[in-house]
Design a protein around this nucleic acid. Structure first.
Lengths: 346, 346
DNA sequence: CTGAAAGCGCTTACAG
DNA sequence: CTGAAAGCGCTTACAG
């Protein structure tokens, strides 16, 4: 019943100091690897720390102006495996650096609630990574004012020139997907792109058009659709595409998920992939190789992009300037079984 | 060049107090909704808080013994969409409660590194949720000692009787999947289960056996395999299964991902689903309905399970006892196109 | 090399 | 109803 017996909390720095027979500042110095501590003292303190399983309070450190060790990651949603890949890369890199990942999602909102920024401020996050998520200019300004490093991964909307960002070579990806289809002999190649405001959508679409141009195939507005990267939309646009007068013999879906929607619509119509129509995706999510038939797609190194974002954050945290404003990771075409030569005209 | 102009950090409680012409404790009272503050004072303070966009420092609160607002979630891995679903549910529920999610993964380790627990202690997390992840007894004891609430979701290994946990009715799920196949007329029904140490694996397998028993079909060791819930293993076990003397006409894969591996192996062998062989999965991940053919599976409400775990955490945080030690959310059979009547013996 | 002192931003008794 | 005082666990100058 004695209050003193109630203490549940862990060992404190003062405890260590007492046990080691030194002052608190000395323990602090040992912990911070300062050189002005004698060999003997250091050893003694370190032993006691070991024995007690002592862990410094991040709260106290943060309060004293130090780092909280927290990095806020805001993702567009937690529905697509796309995000899972990115988060995996981020989490791995963060863990390796002794940093922790605080995860939030937009939940269908287009902008983070102001509650989110308040959380970032409140918990004293060291940095922020935005994944496919837009943040209003005033929030970005606030982050800057608070000196909180920010990195954007696959920016939604305008990329602020001055915000470091990481993406993939989407233009090249769009180009090579289309070129692949063209080289197989297709001439009616449709594309179902991503959401219009997205930078990567624009780049992929531009790559598609450039490949068409390079092959001397005229761009046909009827064959270009905007989607949302999701299966349902992929299916819907495919149905529309099949009803076009001179229907496409190949569809470049803007994402793997959208490609699965294309599969679905094709199946409904009794069309076979790739015999009747070729399909190419984008992302190379794990599901691409598991699809029936395995999906030809453009791989973007999502997990590595996540790691790269952390890399940039770390530089920023060190006070170093990030060398490049924008880093683009390479995409590559992965040919599987969903693309083939067009059925000869009979 | 003046140091005072350098202050980047945000508004502090002292600033608010000064601007409102009151003391710091008074501001604190207003913030904490204490009743012993006059109407007028309260209004004035609240207005200043608004104007200044003031946000309390979580670090300082945590230090003072309050809550950090952080909940640590440790997941087995960040590879399977299974975790994405669970995390989504957790994140939503946490955000609604004004709590933040700190995410860590096991990275192929079977146990969390001690670094993880140190992080939990260091940042003063309010609670911990373990998803498909085992934590050694001493770590659990440490959490208890620190009075940090813990909830386990889909426990890996032994469930500690005294640790609140949430799962799904796996036994029922295993039973109904098998019963479904049996009722279609199958008699050679194989099962590829999950990892042996997993509680849910055991329950599903038991459900499978019970359904066999109920139908008077003898259990055949040859037709029961343990897997790891992943596609590759599903494919490998399927190949083995097809080589069994009296090969199965239906396969109950322990998870949707494993079922996709089954699809793959079947395709290699030129077998059609469901004409040649029926397949049933478990989980009902988004990918199940997108597969070709759409996968019949047992749905478990992953996101809701995540929400439920948060619900339990909140109770624990309130100091209330959690009513039930273990909550099981209902599973349900979702019949799609991968299951059908067995090919008649010709 | 070591430690006394001040202070980070808050909250909690406790006087008034 | 309001505020002076103490203290949460640490770190950073600054004496000695």
């Amino acid at each position: 019943m004695n209050g003193e017996l109630d203490r549940k909390e862990g060992v404190t720095m003062a405890d260590i100091a007492e046990l080691a027979g030194v002052s608190v500042p000395t323990v602090s110095k040992v912990l911070n690897g300062r050189s002005d501590v004698s060999r003997a003292t250091r050893d003694r303190v370190e032993r006691v720390i070991q024995e007690q399983g002592y862990v410094r309070s991040a709260a106290a450190r943060a309060l004293r102006g130090g780092r909280s060790g927290l990095v806020d990651v805001l993702v567009h949603d937690l529905e697509s495996p796309y995000h899972l890949e990115v988060i995996r890369g981020i989490e791995e890199a963060l863990a390796r650096s002794g940093l922790s990942l605080v995860l939030s999602a937009l939940h269908g909102r287009s902008r983070p609630a102001r509650q989110w920024l308040e959380g970032v401020k409140s918990r004293g996050s060291d940095a922020v990574i935005l994944v496919l998520a837009a943040s209003p200019p005033d929030q970005l300004a606030e982050l800057r004012r608070l000196d909180i490093p920010l990195v954007v991964l696959d920016s939604w909307g305008q990329t602020q020139v001055d915000v470091p960002s990481v993406g993939a070579t989407n233009w090249v990806g769009g180009f090579s997907a289309t070129e692949h289809l063209l080289s197989l002999g297709h001439r009616r190649v449709a594309m179902i792109g991503g959401p219009a405001p997205l930078l990567s959508s624009k780049a992929r679409a531009a790559g598609y058009r450039a490949a068409l141009d390079a092959a001397g195939v005229a761009f046909d507005v009827e064959l270009f659709r905007s989607g949302d990267f999701l299966p349902d939309r992929g299916a819907a646009e495919t149905r529309a595409l099949l009803d076009v007068e001179d229907a496409p013999t190949a569809i470049f879906a803007g994402s793997d998920l959208q490609a699965l929607g294309v599969y679905q619509a094709l199946r409904e119509r009794g069309k076979h992939v790739p015999e009747d129509i070729s399909v190419v995706g984008f992302d190379d999510l794990p599901v691409a190789s598991l699809a029936t038939p395995p999906l030809t797609t453009v791989r973007q190194p999502l997990a590595e992009m996540g790691r790269m974002a952390v890399e940039m954050i770390r530089h920023l945290l060190e006070g170093e300037d990030v060398q490049d404003g924008r880093v683009e990771m390479p995409t590559s075409l992965v040919v599987r079984e969903s693309s083939g030569t067009p059925r000869p005209l009979s």
